Simulated scan of single mutants.
Amino acid sequence: MKLLFDQNLSHKLVARLADLFPDSSHVQFHGLAEKTDTEIWEFAKANDFCIVTQDADFAERSRLYGYPPKVLWLRCGNAPAKQVEALLRSGAEAIQELLDNSKLHCLELH
């Protein structure tokens, strides 16, 4: 499964994290930057992406509907891309568990 970075995260994260999460993308690369959460959710579901977001709405949607798609909810506030990258790198093992474990639908990283 690939990561799909939400609009509230830097598109630069795709390249910065390509060594850990190849084939990941950003919503703006798919014309989804101004789309609704539902449209992003359906795109991620249809294209086997895990949504990476700072938006609680996706985590709530995950609780209501389960997966796919899975959701990676970053709880680091409005942090610079380098800090977000560091958080994702330090949480790589937990993220891989989310992606691999059929019983998990959402992971919060702090």
Rank of each mutant, 00 (worst) to 15 (best):
N8T: 01
D100C: 11
L64H: 11
K70S: 05
V84L: 10
G77S: 13
L88V: 08
E39L: 04
P68Q: 07
A18C: 10
G91A: 11
S25N: 10
C76H: 10
W73C: 12
N78E: 07
H110E: 13
L13G: 03
R16G: 02
K12A: 04
L13N: 03
Y67W: 07
G66L: 08
L32T: 10
L20K: 14
A33H: 10
M1L: 10
H26R: 02
L107V: 00
E108P: 14
Q96R: 15
Q54W: 00
H26Q: 02
L4E: 05
G66C: 07
W41T: 05
K82H: 10
C106H: 05
R63V: 14
A79W: 05
V84R: 03
A92I: 03
S10V: 00
A92K: 15
P22D: 04
T38M: 12
E85G: 02
H110L: 08
Q7N: 14
E60M: 12
F49H: 15
C76N: 13
A94E: 14
D48G: 11
M1G: 12
K12Y: 05
R16Y: 07
A79F: 00
K82M: 11
G31T: 04
V14Y: 01
E39I: 02
D55L: 07
Q83P: 00
T36K: 10
T53L: 01
V14L: 02
D19P: 12
D57I: 01
E108W: 04
L87K: 12
H110C: 07
N78M: 04
F29H: 14
H30V: 00
R63I: 14
A59D: 09
E85V: 01
G91L: 06
L107G: 05
E39N: 11
F21N: 06
L72S: 09
F29L: 07
K12W: 01
E93F: 09
L72A: 08
E108I: 01
P80E: 02
N47W: 03
T36W: 00
K103W: 05
N8D: 05
G31V: 03
P80Q: 06
P68F: 01
E42P: 09
A86Y: 05
A44T: 10
A15V: 00
V14T: 04
L3K: 03
L3V: 07
G31I: 03
V71W: 10
E108C: 08
W73F: 15
A79N: 09
L87M: 13
A92V: 11
